[in-house]
Nucleic acid binder design. Structure first.
Length: 257
DNA sequence: ATGGTTGTATAACAA
């Protein structure tokens, strides 16, 4: 059994009460975290160690920041230098656990379609796809997971007709993510095709979570052979209902490995 | 309604 999760925490330090409760009651084997909002020195590694986790961190002061924590020791890890990633932005970390490479990404949000950050986002997604191919990771046991900041289909947003063509729900982003992920399988959608299944609810929409006005923009993507071994996948909706929640919640997948 | 809230860091940004 291998349980894998991804969670955009929107500050790891302010999310530790939720992480402690969740991981104590429902431990996962490998957890990818995004938006740490702090450099390595601010990452609560000791608290994770006390819960039985190893950790690798790529931090940044105030913004971005990604980490992977694992109950099994890491066989390897990597913080790659990527030509398509702006200098100083901590958005990608890889770690190898039980023979599987986990590629944890925090894809740029893009701000708006007219912003210069939008083509940066498209190039970033395409760049990750090229990187996975160039490194041979598409032909290996690989899980690409994280906050991809793209909703792919109408069922992935609360109001597709209003949101279509806007950032995170634009056909150009959907196309480039589909091309970048290529043969990989969206493990949540393998097990749950329902509408109204989201991983992000904007703080700024009044009662957005209670009204389930959300987006499904966090993913666990697995190479086909691995995806065949996935038994279930689900959204940990309860974490979004707790005190001081992140605007995202965790996505989890269980593999028969 | 181009609003709203949250986090970092302590004034604006980013999301």
């Amino acid at each position: 059994m291998l349980t894998v999760a991804t969670f955009n925490v929107n500050s790891v330090r302010s999310r530790m009460p939720i992480l402690r409760k969740w991981l104590t009651e429902n431990p996962v084997d490998v957890l990818a975290l995004q938006e740490l909002k702090g450099d390595e020195s601010k990452f609560p590694l000791q608290e994770f160690q006390e819960m039985g986790y190893h950790g690798v961190v790529h931090g940044q002061k105030a913004y971005n920041g990604v980490a992977i924590v694992s109950r099994d020791p890491f066989e390897d890890y990597m913080i790659p230098t990527l030509p398509f990633c702006a200098e100083g932005e901590a958005r990608v970390i890889l770690a190898k656990v039980r023979g599987i490479w986990f590629v944890n990404t925090y894809i740029p949000q893009g701000q708006s379609v007219s912003s210069e950050k939008f083509p940066y986002k498209l190039a970033f997604l395409a760049g990750i796809g090229k990187y996975l191919r160039d490194q041979g990771l598409m032909d290996a046991q690989t899980i690409w997971l994280g906050d991809l900041n793209v909703a792919l289909e109408d069922r992935d947003v609360y109001n597709p007709d209003d949101l279509r063509g806007k950032v995170t729900f634009h056909p150009d982003e959907q196309k480039v993510l589909r091309e970048a992920s290529g043969p990989m399988v969206d493990v949540l959608r393998k097990h749950n095709g329902n509408e109204g299944v989201y991983t992000f609810w904007d703080y700024r929409i009044p009662n957005g979570f209670k009204r389930n006005l959300g987006w499904r923009i966090d993913y666990i993507l697995a190479t086909p052979e691995l995806a065949e071994r996935s038994e279930d996948a689900w959204v940990e909706t309860g974490l979004r209902a707790m005190e001081k929640p992140s605007d995202h919640t965790a996505l989890v997948a269980r593999f028969d490995l």
